[in-house]
């Protein structure tokens, strides 16, 4: 029977009732120290950027409603794979994180965790109007309004929601920026991590993350 029938709130081994654990502050699962700043000459290496631009891995994480348009984009009608864009199942294998519309606080925490797991160089593409100034949910108590404060964004594709054609235009823009070495959102994130972390801490209260138990 999937649902507890005991009628009693189950207690954790530590005796604390389930669900009422005190909110942890920044647990160790989030990046604390600031990595060494990257040398800028790295980004003038045209060859490296050309390779990076020609084969992007989009993380399979539909954070908002715009991810429904990633379906037609990834499948045969618009086929992003012909531009070298494939899906990355886990953060480790992906280089582009698409924030496809509104971002609730609960998802923001997982998005930050996924973003920080992605290897550099990594880029963020923000879709729709919700990432710019709150969109339709400007007065909602659970969605963030300005994505810029929490994650560095490289390309905004506007539309509610942006069509696959607009997404392709966005990706082309991103690829050009990478080739020119201008898509340096990740360097900015590393260099002023404290500012980003302060904004995130202002919004995310419960920094608990699910521990995997054997």
């Amino acid at each position: 029977m999937g649902v507890e029938e005991k009628g009693k709130v189950p207690l954790l081994p530590s005796g604390v009732p389930v669900g009422s654990k005190p909110h942890a502050t920044d647990s160790t699962l989030f990046a604390q120290g600031r990595p060494k700043p990257l040398s800028l000459d790295e980004s003038v290496a045209f060859i490296k950027n050309w390779f990076r631009a020609q084969s992007l891995n989009v993380m399979a994480y539909g954070t908002g409603c715009g991810s429904i348009e990633l379906g037609p984009l990834g499948t045969s009608r618009f086929d992003m794979e012909r531009f070298g864009i494939t899906g990355g199942p886990t953060p480790r294998q992906s280089s582009v994180l698409i924030i496809s519309g509104y971002l609730s606080v609960k998802t923001l925490k997982r998005v930050i965790r996924s973003y920080e797991q992605m290897p550099n160089p990594r880029w963020v593409v923000a879709l729709g109007s919700c990432t710019i100034n709150g969109g339709m949910y400007w007065d909602s108590y659970s969605t963030i309004k300005i994505l810029d404060q929490y994650l560095p964004v490289d390309v905004y594709v506007n539309g509610c929601m942006p069509r696959p054609e607009a997404l392709i235009a966005g990706f082309k823009d991103l690829m050009d920026m990478i080739k020119r070495g201008e898509a340096n959102g990740y360097i900015e994130y590393q260099n002023n991590l404290d500012w980003y972390r302060a904004n995130q801490r202002k919004v995310i209260k419960d920094w608990n993350l699910p521990e995997y138990s054997w």
Partner: peptide, 8 residues
């Protein structure tokens, strides 16, 4: 578990 797309 849900709540990841909650906009109220």
């Amino acid at each position: 578990h849900v709540g990841y797309l909650h906009r109220g």
